[in-house]
Design a protein around this nucleic acid. Structure first.
Lengths: 218, 218
DNA sequence: TTTTTCTGTGAAGTAGAGTTCACAGAAGAC
DNA sequence: GTCTTCTGTGAACTCTACTTCACAGAAAAA
């Protein structure tokens, strides 16, 4: 696992170096910039996972940077820090695209918590984006396939016509179609005597189905 | 309609046979076991709909059995009975995965009520899996819709073009299509200023997504 | 004001999922 | 052996989900 890159942008040199040091010490790859303009120049070659930026700065300031960042790199998380903290201020920051908001002065732990929490969220979103779950959901999206999975989960092992009859479907080729689909997705498999049963993946799916049904129903 | 299978696991022979007799008399197919280990040996070939298990038993005991059961057969309902009933005891049992909890001594009617009630719930959950969930899964089956849901979950409220840019999709009408889909399925809604946000149902879906991603990825 | 961006609709086309049908070898029943 | 049931395949078709395009009023920026 490679260290996440974090940009720290603040015109206050003391605070900036202090933040960088805290993050570095916690295993991140933190880099400080004095102005938004300087940071933007670097961002082409060095894309960070997260940015910590001060609200009030000479030049384009935190809000201006944020607008540009969210447009060109929508997946970079932004934590805004500010000295003059008001509700309006915070709301404006969040509306402007900030992912988190810290009022000065903040504790070391608050900063680290915000950073880690947002990186966690980022990772989750990226996993969702990576697809991979498409197949899983596609399998669950069909009622017949769900029925087959649940049926097999209860009986543990069934022959082809047993499944077909159990579902009350007259056309056996339709069942065969979905069964093949499930087989291709490694949710069910066949043994030597052609009996179908769930794979470990398939069992997990049934597990998920039950969890979902409990959650969706209230 | 075929009789539901119920396992009764208690080291106290008198009580066990008494429970089995009550359930049998009411039309269930009840089978007694003296220990959790004996029950587990049978559970491969004989999957019950419901299990009545005593808390205090020699060997792995009720809690140990419950943990195993919930892992391997999450759809089996578990009623725990116990002699020394305290609040902590009950809470621990429910946290451990019990679906219901009976303190000894209990009346015949209490037992039957608990059993029937939990079987009813089970049937309801299974019916949910069979039908009704089509729309829910259809929503989750599409990657863009999942991305929108996750994005909104993180931001709580976003305008149309913010979402589009955040997803990095050039054609805004495509996003609009899926957004409308989500709206029609009551997963997202719009406020007066046209900002999109998750509904309660939508939040539940994101919740489900979390569960699934955790489960599917090992 | 004009101009651009935002937010959306509806029609047309495309791709893929799902269904149905015709057929056929394998396995059991007789 | 014959006959029936089981277990499947592949092609053709249908239907729906998804995409793309053209257009347009509303809101914001200039």
């Amino acid at each position: 696992m490679t260290a996440e890159t974090i940009m720290v942008i603040d015109d206050d040199q003391d605070l900036r170096e202090s933040i960088v040091e805290i993050l570095d010490h916690d295993g991140f790859k933190a880099i400080g910039f004095e102005t938004a303009e300087l940071a933007l120049r670097e961002i082409k070659s060095l894309v960070p996972e997260l940015v910590v930026v001060d609200n009030m700065m000479p030049g384009m300031g935190g809000m201006g940077l944020m607008a540009l960042l969210k447009r060109n790199h929508p997946d970079i998380k932004i934590i805004m820090i500010t000295a003059f903290s008001t509700v309006d201020n915070a709301v404006a920051a969040m509306k402007g695209g900030a992912d988190d908001y810290l009022a000065k002065p903040f504790k070391r732990e608050e900063l680290l918590m915000a950073v880690k929490c947002n990186l966690e969220t980022l990772k989750f979103e990226q996993k969702m984006i990576e697809a991979g779950m498409d197949d899983a959901f596609a399998c669950l999206a069909n009622q017949i396939r769900r029925q087959i999975l649940v049926t097999l989960a209860g009986k543990k092992e069934m022959r082809f016509m047993d499944i077909t009859r159990h579902l009350g479907i007259s056309d056996h080729t339709k069942v065969n179609f979905h069964l093949k689909n499930l087989k291709n997705n490694n949710l069910v498999s066949q043994d030597r005597v052609k009996a179908y049963h769930l794979t470990r993946q398939g069992e997990k799916m049934v597990d998920c189905l039950h969890l979902l049904s409990k959650r969706i129903v209230q």
